[in-house]
Design a protein around this nucleic acid. Structure first.
Length: 1007
RNA sequence: GCGUGGUUAGCUCAGUGGUAGAGCACUACCUUGACACGGUAGGGGUCGCAGGUUCGAACCCUGCACCGCGCACCA
């Protein structure tokens, strides 16, 4: 550090050192170095979206990971922080499709699957590295030689292998079920990707006619019968009120039911109306029919749908009559299944209405259709009421449009290893920080539904299943198989005998088209095929074998067009990135996997606890037989200073790169971590980064001050020459080392930052550096040298403690101050990254340096005197400059040099020691344990000002005395309180009483 | 509805049984030989409300209120 700028300039420093670290392989993990003495420490990065840009959430999350990694290196561990990116199916596909639209006015269908994927890859090659370079700017010490992408060829193969394996285990199945359909992106979504949001809409009441009472209908029952039957009224269990509703009879003797709905556009898809069989208003109508009002143009007989009884209907809600739309509502689908109702799908994939919705609605977008349907009902004279209503609607998290429950054929997964995954957290082998997330995790795992893993997208891992529909007859099945070239069954797997590698097994499943049931191809309709099993069959084969795939395709099999949910690839991240292949022999030789799995810590946001964390745990147990990480640290969510979530639409998210450019990466890291309490959301304010910059500058200048004193770097500390301040700062350093180490060990990052801040700024700079100037401005060379040695000791420890948080400035100063010079090459000589983490002072060191209890006590009374003296200066307008002549009437002996330290801390022109000092009347006084401190004002004393000041002080003292006396006066206090506390109270009272006496005397002396 | 976190200075948050704290903001003063991205001093709080336990409660217990978050959800 030859020429030190007055202010820290981070830009050049940061790039220089990041480059240095990378060139020297400082981030590269070597499994061969792992040993009992050098344990492994590993983290896998939550892979950011490859299309993503760095945002404040990444900053928080990755700074924490970097702190953990750098701390572990300094603890002498072999550290792997494994980075990479995620292919982010929907987001990336959407982005490229949007670009295609904008630049070429084409859709992905226009250019075809192959060409579209080419474009995605091109886009990825061009922009996919942005977030990685941004992480580097932040200082992340990831092992970039091991960077992974979820679409890397070996990763793709791992995903396929897992799919085939789970398929083979019977955990993956294809089914026609109600799924969450996103009409915007036109794909199915998992339950986790749906967000419930309150939505303002309308509750529509419309009436329908019961067909059996219509005038002229055959076998018409009289309305009188009905009246008799519905005599009994319903009384609400909840309110005791009589519920309205029930059938109504009009003047022509027609009978009507009123139905409440929020979605009138789905009426054409209604295939029943349901009432609760226990509802006395309606029970007798079960089995009769109503006339569905829409589509209006259909003949009446085609609009008759049955009234069914189902327990699901809550008779206190709405009118107690529920329209049942099995194709467009999950609960209705279940009712439909129970009653074998027809399923009428009235919508297209994009959320527009199809032909079945009728002439009026056909082609309309679903919300326009809703409005029109209500108008149509009004036109038909059946709309009873339309009132504003708020209900919860599921939204597609990604596209932010309402989900459409839709019946479609998808791949589902029954989660594997659920029991052990639950147990490992419940029983504490895996720890969550803060641990309250363990309950959330457990609850989810207790209630999980099968996972819809297929997505109707092109960008992603294509489902490794090939399909062909065949017509099986009694005698063609065997021939068909022969034609395919296969002739052997092995444990439910159809295998081509030439392909005997069990890992290349093919899993065959057959589904009878007529009823959708899965059949076992081994027994039926294989041998012997019986007449009634003849018919259409869907044959599905899942395989990894390229040779078999080729064979299937030549036999007319086609690959499933869908891709897998992106999370179906990222749940394998902790081991699929480390060389896992799923082959026992090769996995046993995968050095990275063996050394670094299970990983140590995972750092992530609680918003993906289900999406990612829970699923990784299950995959870890299923494929590695062990948990994927030992600790999960859940960060808070970054919000703006008003507490709003950061979002692009709000524009309240600052660009971290911009912040780094303006304040420095260390400043950003500092500001973020300082304001990130454990387990709480983070309210981010740019002021925090500014504070970080100021802090770095302070650190810079503290080192600059040391540099200006010259002298030997890291010389020996001579215990005999230590001043009370030296001993005090060494004790405070010891305390800081303990606090920071403990805080980091328990993931309390904000606490660690707070301890460092307090020690460095409030203790080291504010008191120690100021006090040290007494020696530096003096003439004693030995004392100066010793002071420099103490400062070097403190700063070299301090820089190491700051390194995980502030990697750049600490590295710069480490070298600039020369602390790297006499360090072993691999323990701080080359870089502070591998310098050993500071240990608390040993008992021997404390003994040798005389660090006992009196050190702290003395420092405190000294600082109290200084504060009071400074207060006097302010009160009497002496100003902050080096002004004011103090006289101290000492209470005891002061060690040599202390007076000069006091003078400097008071920033006074002089401080005289005079045991016999007789102050003039009205001289301002501070009464301290070190003695009476006077500020003689050369006749300018305003007696009344001083009297007022002392009187105010007297009142405060009396109040304190009263408080303590009250406590002590309580008889049970003395009896029950611990001795130390009692003693402390008595001492406090004595101290205040002394002060009281002194102050009274001072007031009397004023005359 | 179930679960969960919060409520302490104007703001953001520490403090988890024994004298209410920090940073920012505010007021006044100071460009002093590390630093104005700085220094010194100061003002500002019946610790959400009500009970209880205790010699003693911001802290432990009970209830309530309000603000979040997660899960479930009725048309």
């Amino acid at each position: 550090m030859t020429e030190i700028p007055k202010a820290y300039e981070p830009q050049s420093v940061e790039d220089k050192w990041y480059d240095f670290w990378q060139r020297n392989g400082c981030f590269t993990a070597d499994p061969a170095r792992v040993s009992e003495k050098r344990p492994a420490y590993s983290i896998v990065i939550p892979p950011p979206n490859v299309t993503g840009m760095l945002h404040m959430g990444h900053v928080l999350n990755n700074t924490i990971q970097d702190i953990l990694s750098r701390k572990a290196r300094m603890d002498g561990k072999e550290v792997l922080w494994l980075p990479g990116t995620d292919h982010a199916g929907i987001a990336t596909e959407g982005m490229v499709a949007k670009q295609l639209k904008k630049e070429e006015h084409k859709t992905k269908q226009d250019i075809g699957r192959e060409e579209f994927l080419k474009r995605v890859w091109t886009w990825k090659e061009k922009h996919g590295g942005i977030i990685i370079s941004q992480l580097k700017k932040l200082g992340c010490s990831c092992d970039w030689t091991r960077e992974r992408f979820t679409m890397d060829p070996d990763y793709v193969r791992n995903v396929q292998r897992v799919f085939v394996d789970l398929y083979k285990k019977g955990l993956i199945y294809r089914g026609k079920r109600m799924v969450n359909w996103c009409p915007a992106t036109q794909t199915a979504l998992s339950d986790e990707e749906v967000e419930m949001k309150p939505q303002k809409g309308f509750m529509y009441h419309f009436k329908v006619e019961v067909a059996e009472y219509a005038p002229g209908s055959s076998g018409r029952e009289s309305a009188q019968t009905l009246l008799a039957a519905s005599q009994s009224r319903l009384t609400s269990a909840a309110t005791g009120e009589e519920k309205k509703g029930g059938p109504e009879i009009d003047s022509e003797g027609r009978v009507w039911l009123t139905i409440a709905t929020t979605r009138p556009e789905t009426i054409p898809g209604d295939t029943a109306v349901a009432v609760n069989p226990k509802d006395p208003r309606y029970a007798h109508l079960i089995g009769k029919h109503i006339v569905r009002p829409l589509p209006a143009e259909l003949p009446r007989e085609q609009k008759l749908i049955p009234i069914i009884g189902d327990e699901h209907v809550d008779f206190e809600f709405g009118t107690g009559v529920l329209k049942v739309t099995p194709a467009h509502d999950k609960a209705d689908f279940d009712i439909g299944t129970r009653h074998k109702l027809p399923i009428v799908d009235i919508m297209n994939a994009d959320g527009t209405m199809n032909d079945l919705a009728g002439a009026d609605l056909r082609g309309l977008e679903r919300f326009k259709a809703r409005k029109l349907a209500s108008e149509k009902l009004a036109e038909l004279g059946v709309l009873v009421e339309e009132k504003p209503y708020e209900n919860n609607v599921g939204f597609s998290q990604r596209a932010d449009v309402p989900i459409e429950p839709r019946l479609s054929e998808q791949w589902f997964l029954k989660y594997p290893s659920v029991g052990v995954s639950k147990a490992c957290v419940a029983e504490g082998q895996m720890k969550f920080h803060p641990d309250r997330w363990a309950k959330v995790y457990d609850h989810w795992l207790t209630n999980i539904q099968d996972w819809c893993i297929s997505r109707q997208l092109w960008w992603g891992h294509r489902v490794p299943v090939w399909h062909k529909r065949i017509h099986v007859t009694e005698d063609n099945w065997g021939k068909t198989l022969d034609a395919w070239g296969w002739d052997e069954w092995v444990a439910g797997n159809w295998q081509r005998h030439a392909e005997s590698d069990p890992n290349e097994a093919t899993v065959v499943r057959m589904v009878r088209v007529s009823d959708g049931t899965e059949v076992d191809p081994k027994i039926q309709p294989m041998s012997p095929a019986v007449k009634e099993d003849e018919g259409e069959y869907d044959v599905f084969v899942a395989t990894l074998s390229p040779a078999l795939i080729k064979n299937f395709e030549s036999c007319g099999f086609t690959q499933d067009p869908d891709v897998l949910d992106t999370w179906f690839s990222s749940w394998l991240w902790p081991f699929a990135t480390m060389g896992w292949t799923g082959e026992k022999a090769s996995d046993a030789n995968a050095a990275t996997l063996r050394a670094f799995y299970p990983t140590t810590d995972l750092v992530t946001g609680p918003d993906i606890i289900f999406f990612w964390v829970a699923r990784m745990i299950m995959a870890g147990y299923e494929y590695m037989g062990d948990l994927p990480f030992k600790n999960v640290y859940f960060t808070g969510i970054i919000r703006d200073k008003q507490g709003r979530k950061m979002s692009k639409t709000l524009g309240n998210s600052p660009d971290p790169l911009d912040l780094i450019a303006r304040y420095g990466a260390d400043a950003l890291r500092f500001g973020t971590m300082r304001s990130a309490p454990l387990g709480q959301d983070v309210l981010f304010d740019e002021k925090d980064v500014e504070l970080g910059r100021n802090f770095c500058n302070k650190l810079w200048n503290a080192c600059r001050f040391r540099q200006m004193q010259g002298g030997e770097v890291q010389g020996e500390i001579n215990a005999a020459l230590l001043s009370s301040d030296d001993r005090w700062i060494l004790l405070r350093l010891d305390q800081a080392i303990r606090e920071v180490s403990d805080a980091l060990a328990s993931y309390n990052f904000a606490t660690a930052v707070q301890s460092l801040y307090r020690f460095f700024w409030s203790e080291y700079c504010d008191w120690y550096v100021e006090a040290s100037k007494a020696a530096f401005f003096g003439e004693d060379a030995a004392l100066k040298a010793n002071k420099v040695a103490v400062i070097d000791f403190v700063l070299s420890h301090l820089l190491r403690m700051f390194h995980p948080l502030l990697p750049f400035i600490t590295e710069e100063l480490w070298h600039g101050m020369g602390y790297s010079a006499d360090m072993p090459e691999e323990q701080g000589g080359k870089t502070i990254m591998f310098a050993r983490w500071p240990k608390p002072l040993s008992a021997e060191e404390k003994e040798a340096w005389g660090l006992d209890d009196t050190v702290e006590t003395f420092a405190n009374v000294k600082f109290e005197l200084v504060t009071q003296g400074r207060n006097l200066k302010t009160q009497f307008n002496i100003g902050a400059g080096k002004k004011g002549k103090f006289t101290l009437k000492p209470a005891g002996n002061l060690a040599p040099g202390e007076a000069e330290v006091l003078r400097l801390l008071l920033s006074a022109e002089s401080l005289d020691l005079d045991p016999n000092f007789a102050p003039k009347k009205g001289t301002p006084t501070a009464l301290t344990k070190l003695g009476e401190l006077y500020l003689p004002l050369d006749g300018l004393v305003d007696v009344e000002v001083e009297r007022a000041r002392l009187t105010k002080e007297l009142a405060k003292i009396q109040a304190e005395i009263e408080k303590v006396e009250q406590k002590l006066a309580n008889p049970s206090f003395a009896q029950k309180v611990p001795a130390a506390v009692l003693e402390e109270h008595k001492q406090r009272l004595a101290d205040w009483q002394t002060k009281l006496a002194q102050t009274k005397a001072a007031i009397e002396a004023l005359g």
